[in-house]
Computed example of a mutant assay.
Amino acid sequence: MPLASLVAGLAIVVLTSCASSEGAPSEGGSPSAAPASSPDRVSVVASTNVYGDIARQIGGDRVDVVSIISDPSQDPHSFEANAQTQLRLSNAKVVIENGGGYDDFVDTMLKAAGNPGAQVLNAVTISGKTAPPGGGLNEHIWYDLPSVGKIADQIAAAFGKADSMGAAQFTANASAFKAKLDTLVKDEADIAATAKGQGVAITEPVPLYMLEACGLVDRTPGEFSEAIEEGGEIPPRALRETLALLTGKRVAALVYNEQTAGPETEQVRQAAQKGGVAVVPVTETLPPGKDYIGWMTDNIAAVRGALSR
């Protein structure tokens, strides 16, 4: 889900410092005052706790990570910046953003922070993903495991540049992280070997990279998922066609972004349940108590379970 619509509002918040007295969300997801970065650690700011967790796994105790968005119940469109987040960006050595129009607020805040020396890692740029001819870019890079492996390498390199004494540790941690990713890639391939192009429905394109890696085909009318993602009005015909996929049980599963539920998506979810179609909930940020690998393991297992029904 793109967050570009937040940029103007964020600029006002940043420049006037009319922010809440609460600090940036902590890595665990609960709001707390953003602590000052330890002088002997690399200060890292990530746009979401997805990248924050990956940074933590690679950096270990040599980095100090703050994630700007970390609440899985929060619609990213409702995000509001605060002065403490701005302060952390002004001192950050490494900033990790998704890019692709998803979290443009990071660039806006970083520019206002006046921190030209920060190393800024853009996940979309690192992935090499581009929009297909005549289509739009799917910016939800963190659901594409090979891209996440590339991002891990770049994070390790950035940390090594900021802390040369820890470079070997960062590289080793990134290798260990990528070994876990390889296991998940194999799990996706195993599903794809038996999925045989089965169709699925989605509410938003958030999990599409994972579903495609599992050999599944999105049957949802593009107008429906695009309208949900952009917060626009859903054409009645697109809603009817989406509902028909579920009531007629013409897809194996509905993969449902529970982080941005609304009346239409709830209607679709209920249609799936009544039609006997498995519902696979996904989110855009880490659930409480999960790290990235555990989260993706659960998502892939949920897809496998839905297909076995």
Rank of each mutant, 00 (worst) to 15 (best):
S43A: 15
A193C: 05
Y143T: 12
L6P: 00
N98C: 07
P72H: 05
N299Y: 05
T183G: 13
S21Q: 05
D104I: 02
I300S: 08
G134R: 09
E212A: 08
A131D: 05
P221W: 06
V255D: 12
G23V: 06
L216T: 10
E229I: 06
F224C: 07
D40P: 13
D61C: 06
L211M: 13
K111Q: 13
V268Q: 00
T297G: 14
L216G: 06
F177N: 07
V148Y: 01
L184C: 05
C18T: 13
T265F: 03
A272Y: 00
I234F: 04
G60H: 04
Y209C: 11
G231H: 09
I58R: 11
L137M: 10
G114V: 13
F159C: 04
I58V: 15
E229Y: 14
T283N: 15
G149M: 08
E204K: 04
D104P: 01
S127M: 05
A244P: 01
L286A: 03
D64I: 00
A238R: 08
C214A: 15
T220L: 07
G294N: 05
G294D: 12
S26D: 12
W142H: 07
S26R: 14
L216E: 11
A302E: 03
L15E: 10
V206P: 08
Q198D: 00
R304H: 05
V106R: 04
S164P: 02
V66L: 04
S17W: 08
G128P: 03
F224W: 07
P35N: 12
G135W: 01
V280E: 04
